[in-house]
Nucleic acid binder design. Structure first.
Length: 811
RNA sequence: GCGGUCGUGGCGGAAUCAGGUAGACGCGCUAGCUUGAGGUGCUAGUGCCCGCAAGGGCGUGGGGGUUCAAAUCCCCCCGACCGCACCA
């Protein structure tokens, strides 16, 4: 008699077994071929939500699948435990963020374990571990020493809500803070930066070597935004006192003869100097207005151009034509890109065209558009015109090169490359983060804290007040210190590092989190890196993934990691987002579906299968339309078929035909699952297992069929399959079994459905031998009565036979 | 505006990579059996239209093209979503 399926007891039992038997712990000298699976380490916000469940289900499936395939699988996890929510909670409750964070971690850990996800917990890393802080600081100081970290006064994005500086990446396109939604202001502050721009080219080029979604690679390419061109100087007319004058950047030096005006950013340092007296009043008013406007207004395309620019009264000399051109200011020219000044060529640039039209400035074409061209600015190829020594050249590349050569010969310009990517601003005016380990001495300036004094840890006896400033700033014991060089009084840096720093190398620490003398050992990194499969949300497509790539390259170049390690993540999988009724699920929207309730009612296996079954893993999921009922029923059906429940017949060896039929179906199933697993098609893999289970209900089961079903299902539904396997094979553990192998001979179908078409329309279906030849197929097709009815006695003009699947008779 | 992804039953989706039975699998729904009832479970049916049926016609956002054959490839249009957005 079949036992009842008690998912709660089974899950408790097996989760304890995996931990006790250390099934998924792997040592650094493991002899099996390595495979490193990593799900992005989570920010600990408490119990897992659906997004976590989805993420860890995919990762866990892969860990178990690869293990069954004979790999030594590294499956670590940790917690991205620094960050703003914990600090805000501290301000609210007056309690230190550490116990708060540790409690959230425990909640998250237990719900990750509750869905049956397995990790090598010995390797757990938390960003706020003092050891992790130490190595974060060691790396920072090494960057400082190598010039990869620097401090400078810069206009920064200041969020008044968070009372901190934000990286460019954290400011949304509408100019608001991605976290608080406040409108971000510009402020000038001394800030720490990492020189990620040193790696701009490598970050761009190495994308080609990665098996990442094209979407993510494209986003990174656009973010880096490499553009090649030239920089050159323009004299300001009648102002020899200004030396070289104005430097402009252009990607189209070949069109320079068509430059009919010059535009500066309103913040450009030369604005005050060149503006003529009669224009001063208007120009000052314009600059005031623009600088007061938010980014949103400034970048809006809704507004007309009329109010967006102003004439300075000054002229620059176009070095190509030696003619003076007026200098304007316009809010659409940005001080932060290129040189903050452009040469305007309205005939070959639409923005310049629009501006020229609005301000009645001349337009001179330097590239002949095709005869049928009826647009405004023309950016395509064509012969140069109105360009003296460039006239007639059709190839744009050739014309560009010639123009740049000319600039270089005259010593007024050169080839340059510009990037949209800026250096990474890492200082944060927050408490709950990794302290930046430097001291400011009145005599010695910026002094690194000596390594033997690391880690610099934030003090515990701090008061969390809603002052909007880091408590470190008001803690004299922390702030006041002595200079490591001269011993005189000095002040500690009170800023902490962006939490993206923590997540930029945790995957390296996982390789060897025990070493006390370095962030990680080269040997361990050599063994495990790169990560073979990284799994996470697409929302990290730019920030985290770019920073982690930069860190990996920098750490390799500085000798921390093997220098051959250029990329951290060979393959990336980005799962879709979870929505509920069309809206993105989030705490703030209050539309979360709690996974615990579903685990409790239906079981972890049914929930995991539901996530796998809903649709392609990369697609967004609307939980409202999913439902767990189908996969829950499926799990129970598997339970009954494997428990020798009397509702399913058992096929004995004596019934050779039926036995062979099931055996063949079983081998086909193995083939199908291998294929589906390799291409991440888990929804169809679950469907195939359901289909197979239905077949066993209909035709009867064999031991081989049931065992294979359990093995194939094991990575997806680890608890129920482990329990059933143990029932059927006392003393064995399914997760240490080998993955089934399909016998191609047995997997081959003996008969197939031959489709007979007349004029491309299906008229009959015939069961035929799988090895049928074209002549026989054609003969059988013509013998079909249904086909004859449609042929009306006529002989086909043409026969396309694609045995064994199809015959098409064309009349 | 630029770049990308995608439009298939009442719903999630399969078949799209490699042109060859469209709608696998599941949800939902209908009916029967099981059950003291409800639920569970089992069995059958379920794209749309005509038809008692056999059968026939239509059908993958719209239009066109290539092909013996198009959900799949090509072009145009419509719509949805995502990313970037005066980047010179």
């Amino acid at each position: 008699m079949a036992e009842a399926y008690d998912h709660r007891a089974i899950e408790r039992k097996w989760q304890a077994r995996w931990a006790d038997e250390r099934t998924y712990e792997v040592d650094n000298d493991d002899p099996r071929p390595k495979y490193y699976v990593l799900s992005m380490y989570p920010y600990p916000s408490g119990a897992a939500h659906m997004g976590h469940v989805r993420n860890y289900t995919f990762g866990d499936l892969l860990v178990r699948y690869r293990t069954m395939n004979g790999y030594g699988v590294l499956s670590p996890i940790g917690f991205d435990s620094f960050g703003l929510p914990a600090e805000n909670a501290a301000i609210k409750t007056g309690q230190h963020p550490r116990p708060f964070t540790d409690a959230r971690i425990e909640e998250l850990k237990s719900s990750i374990k509750a869905i049956g996800a397995v990790y090598d917990w010995r390797r757990e890393v938390r960003s706020h571990d003092p050891e992790y802080i130490r190595w974060n600081q060691v790396i920072f100081l090494r960057y400082l020493q190598e010039g990869l970290a620097y401090r400078k006064n810069a206009p920064v994005n200041w969020c008044p809500g968070c009372q901190t500086v934000l990286a460019n990446e954290q400011v949304l396109p509408d100019g608001t803070c991605e976290r608080s939604g406040d409108v971000v202001e510009k402020r000038n502050l001394e800030q720490w930066f990492f020189k990620i721009t040193d790696y701009a080219d490598e970050l761009l080029d190495d994308l080609d070597s990665l098996e990442w979604p094209d979407r993510v690679k494209t986003m990174q390419r656009n973010w880096i935004g490499r553009s090649e061109g030239a920089e050159f100087t323009l004299q300001v007319a009648d102002r020899p006192d200004l030396g070289d004058g104005i430097t402009v950047f252009t990607t189209r030096p070949d069109t320079s003869f068509g430059m009919t005006f010059v535009v500066l950013a309103p913040e450009h340092p030369l604005v005050e100097v060149i503006t003529t007296d009669d224009r001063k009043k208007d120009v000052t008013a314009f600059v005031d207005r623009v600088t007061k406007e938010s980014e949103i207004d400034r970048l809006s395309t809704e507004r007309g151009l009329e109010k967006r620019g102003i004439f300075t009264g000054a002229y620059a000399v176009n070095p190509f034509t030696d003619r003076p051109v007026p200098i304007y200011l316009a809010d659409y020219v940005l001080m932060t890109y290129g040189t903050g000044a452009i040469m305007a060529v309205p005939a070959e640039d639409q923005r310049d065209w629009d501006f020229a039209t609005a301000y009645d400035l001349p337009i001179v074409r330097t590239v002949e558009p095709p005869d049928d061209f009826d647009g405004e600015a023309y950016t395509g190829d064509g012969p140069r015109i109105n360009s003296e020594w460039l006239n007639g050249i059709t190839d744009t590349q050739e014309a560009k090169a010639k123009a740049i050569d000319w600039l270089e010969q005259r010593g007024i310009g050169q080839r340059t490359v510009n990037y949209r990517l800026r250096d990474w601003l890492v200082s944060r005016q927050r408490f709950w983060g990794c302290p930046i380990p430097v001291v400011y001495c009145p005599d010695h300036g910026i002094v690194p804290v000596p390594e033997d004094q690391l880690p610099v840890l934030a003090p515990d006896d701090v008061e969390f007040l809603p002052t909007g400033e880091s408590p470190l700033k008001h803690h004299p014991g922390f702030r006041n210190t002595t200079c490591p060089v001269c011993g005189g009084p000095a002040e500690r840096e009170t800023d902490t590092m962006d939490t993206f720093v923590d997540s930029s190398w945790y995957f390296l620490r996982f390789c060897d989190p025990w070493t006390p003398t370095e962030p990680f050992t080269k040997r361990a990194v050599e063994k495990w890196m790169p990560v073979d499969q990284y799994i996470g949300g697409v929302e990290h497509a730019i920030l985290h993934l770019m920073y982690a790539r930069f860190y990996t390259k920098a750490l390799a170049d500085l000798g921390f990691a093997p220098k051959e390690l250029r990329e951290p993540f060979s393959r990336l999988f980005t799962q879709g987002m979870i929505r509920l009724g069309g809206a993105k699920m989030s705490k703030s929207k209050g539309n979360l579906v709690a996974p615990e309730d579903l685990v409790d009612e239906y079981g972890a296996d049914a929930l995991r299968l539901a996530h796998l079954f809903v649709g392609p893993p990369a697609d967004d999921v609307d939980w409202e339309t999913v439902g767990i009922e189908g996969t829950s029923r499926f799990v129970k059906r598997v339970w009954r078929v494997a428990q020798h429940d009397s509702e399913v017949a058992t096929i004995t060896e004596a019934d050779a035909d039926a036995h062979l039929r099931i055996t063949k179906a079983t081998h086909r199933l193995v083939q199908r699952l291998n294929d589906d697993f390799e291409r991440w098609s888990y929804n169809t893999a679950v469907a195939a297992l359901m289909e197979f289970t239905n077949l066993l209900y209909k035709e009867g089961r064999t031991d081989h069929a049931v065992d294979t079903l359990l093995l194939l299902l094991a990575p997806m539904a680890p608890h129920v399959t482990a329990e059933l396997w143990e029932h059927r094979h006392p003393g064995e553990h399914i997760h240490t079994q080998r993955w089934p192998v399909a016998d191609p001979e047995l997997a081959r179908a003996d008969s197939v459905t031959l489709v007979v078409q007349v004029n491309g329309k299906v008229r009959d279906r015939l069961e035929v031998d799988a090895g049928i030849d074209a002549v026989t197929a054609e003969r059988l097709a013509l013998q079909s009565q249904k086909v004859q009815d449609h042929l009306n006695g006529a002989a086909p003009k043409k026969v396309i036979a694609k045995p064994p699947r199809l015959v098409n008779l064309v009349v």
